[in-house]
Amino acid sequence: MTKPTDDGKHEEQLIQALQETWSNLDRTFETELTPLPDWEAVVREQRRSAKRKMWKELAILWSVAIPVLGMLFFLATGMLPLLIAVEAAATAAAVPLLIGEIKRMGRTAKGRS
């Protein structure tokens, strides 16, 4: 049975051997750095891309938020019945148009077959 101190020493030797192994790996795979202007170009492009992504996400957020806020506004000001009436009228007008469009698509599909 090994003494605790032997165990500790053995582990220390192992850690040193591991560190040597890792250092060898670093030396074997040395890196070559690309010129600074290339890095600057990457930074500029990535920042531009991140900004575009942020504006796109904001646009999506507001396209959902504005109608919801609008509904809440109408609700709060007691104009909700008016909003419902306008939406009902718009739906009533749209339904015949939709039926017509479906019939037209059906005729086109029959014609092709």
């Binding site: 790996l25 670093d26 795979f29 890196t31 690309t34 600074l36 890095w39 990457v42 930074v43």
Partner: peptide, 15 residues
């Protein structure tokens, strides 16, 4: 400055 910093640290990160 960011480009310089990233370039300096690439080797450390890769290794």
């Amino acid at each position: 400055e960011l480009a310089v910093l990233l370039r300096e640290h690439y080797g450390i990160l890769f290794h």
